[in-house]
Amino acid sequence: MDIRQLQYFVEVAKQKSFTKAANTLHVSQPSISKMMKALEEELGVVLLDRTERKMELTDAGELVYDHATKVLHLMDSLALSIGEIRNMERGRVKMGMMPTVGSFLLPNVIALFKKQYPGIDIEMKEYSAKLLEIHVEQGSIDVGLTVLPADTEKFDAVPLQAEDLVAIVHREHWISERESISLAELREEAFILFTEEYAIHDVVKQACLRAGFEPQVAYMSSLWDFVGELVATQLGISLVPRSIVRRLNNSELRTVNISSPKIDWQYALIFRKDHYLSHAARAFISFAEQHLSP
Rank of each mutant, 00 (worst) to 15 (best):
Y8G: 05
V10Y: 14
K20C: 03
H26L: 01
Q29Y: 12
P30H: 09
S33C: 08
K37H: 06
K37Q: 05
L48P: 01
T51D: 03
M55Y: 01
E56K: 15
T58R: 06
D76H: 08
S77I: 04
S77R: 12
I82D: 02
G83K: 02
G83D: 00
N87A: 06
N87T: 07
E89T: 02
G91P: 14
G91W: 12
R92P: 05
R92M: 09
T100L: 00
V101P: 04
S103D: 02
F104T: 00
P107V: 04
N108A: 05
I110A: 06
I110D: 03
K115W: 01
G119N: 03
D121W: 15
D121N: 14
E123V: 10
Y127Q: 10
S128V: 11
S128R: 11
S128E: 01
K130R: 09
L131P: 00
L131S: 02
G144F: 11
T152H: 10
D156W: 14
A157K: 11
A162K: 14
E163Q: 12
V166T: 15
A167H: 10
A167V: 12
A167P: 07
V169I: 14
H170C: 15
H170R: 09
W174S: 11
W174R: 08
I181E: 03
L183R: 08
L183N: 04
L183W: 01
A190P: 07
I192F: 15
T195Y: 05
E196H: 10
Y198I: 11
H201F: 01
D202V: 12
V203H: 13
V204M: 03
G212E: 00
F213P: 03
Q216H: 11
V217P: 06
S221K: 07
S221V: 03
S221I: 00
D225H: 13
L230D: 03
L239F: 07
V240G: 05
P241F: 13
I244K: 00
R246S: 09
R247A: 02
L248W: 07
N249Y: 15
N250M: 07
S260C: 01
P261N: 03
D264C: 04
W265A: 14
Q266G: 12
Y267G: 04
Y267H: 10
A268L: 07
I270L: 02
D274S: 09
H275G: 11
Y276S: 10
Y276Q: 10
P294H: 02
